[in-house]
Nucleic acid binder design. Structure first.
Lengths: 339, 339
DNA sequence: TTGATACTTGACAGCGCTGTCCAATCATCG
DNA sequence: CGATGATTGGACAGCGCTGTCAAGTATCAA
């Protein structure tokens, strides 16, 4: 193990006090350019890295950002992590991941962890973005947080999102443009705020096109493959079936695809299927899924940025927020409506 | 923000010195039961949590375990994280995730991170388990690590694994028992140690059954859906095709499934398909995939345990290791060979 | 030249905890 | 009953860094 280089070594090497080294490290103003250069040279020469524990003990920053998730879609979680880390690395921050089991006592999981590890901030992923106990625990402990894709109570804290309603609207419009008139819809998990928005987007698009949503054409799902499968069985079970089904996420769309395969319905010629999220699974099927690409990577990066900037919110002003662009990904699972 | 409770508060509350509180916290011996109880009562009453930065600065433990991964299958990574965390929570440890991009300069990514954050240990997932630069960086910095499913150089450091060869052997045997004689195989990514072992298991089973592996029946894949798809096109392209295909992971098996669908080959009646890993995708298809369930969750947990125990290896003795059981998951994608 | 006003730098005191070392207390035995 | 060793508790010194505050130095107008 290489002997630990400390700030004292750097100070000695460059002939200044440790405080000045600290100033250079933290990019504080009021250091002569010449001094700064000498210190930086010493840092490089000794290959010095500040110790994060000492920094966080002495100072106010912990250089640690948490990511909380619950019962995650693996692809989503991984994307969030990658997006957040990409930003954190540049600033010397690290990412702590904390799965939360919201079927157990959430308070018991969150409170101790916040007390032991004073994180600079936490990124909340759905459905935790809307979990009241998590939010209040964070607030009580004074840990700032950013919500990804919150479903409501938008003025409570900073958030990053995309326009789920608009995305669902455009996907529905895509289907309508292909000639579909009778479209089925599968709602997402009721705990996820996005579910409502996507449903609304679907309804709005249908209304704006002057199309009726027929009875029994909207099914409740849970964002899981199985729930999509079961919803599709109900939707496609009789002889009177819709010509297209729009599922609120890819997993459920894949469930629909499985039912279609089983019923020997040709996708997309007999039935068009659309998903939402563009998870890896969307490409791991044939035909590949038409879906909406969420800017998850970018959303997480933006959330990390907000946390690291540590912008103080002014009294009365709305919290900072950011809406990123989605992208309609049209692949082979949607096509012209049958005549 | 609730005022911070420190070890001094607990000491005052329970009428002992801070050192004694520290002893109780760290389960050190030589504290009278009575004293221990008083301290624990005070800890509970004040809702005290030791500050992790102070602990790691003063002591030798950091209470931080790293998980390194590269270009991960999201399901795999998530499973590893969940498995590791389950153990870490009990001991008050936290998990730091660090994606490594092995197409860039690995040294530049690993060295600074190890220096700033003195982790107690690192869990390496494939293909990083076999990455020479990562291993030597870790060794140079004196950070202990556990490799998950290493492909070779087994005596270098502790590891956790399953018997990939045997699992592939048994899956092949399952196919043979169903009457298949002409079986195709798709090899995994050459950088993953497991690829070789799975291939070997396949060959061994064929040999033991007295079956020949025909020319052109073994294709190289890259563990991706696309590579499986392309391999399957070659395998199934002509009229002379195998009756079963065993892909080295699920993603590739799904690729095979897609080709089969496109060619209107009935699975499993005309073609049996087997995968490996039991990723979520294995169930997100129809028919569902026969595959091998890797005990990823358990392997990660075991790795975390090894790290937290911090067992010192004796000179000359082989490093600790653990081989966990796999499980053959027979679902609908494999069936009797056609007559 | 002088005082006022920047700008730079450093001394020092902790942050909250553990490791070391010593003192006090207790049990046990010849 | 004193001596011996084991058990238990506490004082104290940092771990490596940042925040505070004050001192030193350069700059400029009067």
């Amino acid at each position: 193990m290489s002997a630990k280089v400390t700030i004292h070594d750097v100070a000695r090497e460059s002939g200044v006090s440790i405080k000045t080294v600290s100033r250079v490290l933290n990019r504080e103003p009021n250091v002569k350019a010449d001094t700064r250069d000498r210190v930086q040279a010493a840092v490089a020469a000794l290959n010095y890295r500040p110790n994060i524990s000492a920094r966080s003990l002495a100072g106010s920053k912990a250089y640690l950002i948490g990511v909380f998730f619950d019962n995650p879609s693996p692809g989503y979680v991984t994307d969030v992590q990658l997006g957040a880390i990409a930003r954190c690395r540049q600033e010397g921050y690290h990412l702590i991941v904390e799965p939360i089991d919201s079927t157990a006592d959430v308070e018991d999981q969150v409170a101790p962890m916040l007390a032991t590890l004073r994180m600079d901030g936490v990124i909340l992923t759905p459905p935790l973005s809307d979990h009241p106990v998590v939010l209040s625990a964070l607030e009580r402990e004074g840990v700032s947080y950013v919500r990804i894709a919150p479903g409501g109570d938008i003025d409570r804290a900073p958030w990053v999102s995309m326009d789920d309603r608009l995305a669902a609207y455009e996907m529905t419009k895509h289907l309508i443009d292909l000639g579909h008139r009778d479209i089925g819809f599968i709602i997402g998990h009721p705990d996820h705020g996005a579910s409502r928005l996507r449903h609304q987007g679907f309804l709005d698009a249908m209304r704006d096109a002057g199309l009726a949503v027929r009875d029994g054409r909207v099914e409740q799902g849970m964002f899981s493959f199985r729930s999509g499968f079961e919803a599709a069985e109900r939707l496609l079970g009789g002889s009177d079936r819709p010509t297209a089904i729009f599922a609120s996420n890819d997993d459920m769309a894949l469930g629909v695809m499985a039912v279609a395969n089983r019923l020997r319905l040709d996708v997309p010629n007999a039935l068009s299927i659309a998903g939402f999220d563009d998870t890896p699974g969307a490409r791991i099927t044939w035909p590949q899924l038409t879906t909406v690409r969420q800017p998850i990577f970018a959303m997480a990066g933006a959330a990390a940025d907000m946390l690291m900037d540590g912008v103080e919110r002014e009294e009365g002003a709305p919290p900072p927020s950011k809406v990123l662009d989605f992208e309609l990904v049209v692949r082979e699972s949607t096509g012209q409506a049958p005549a």
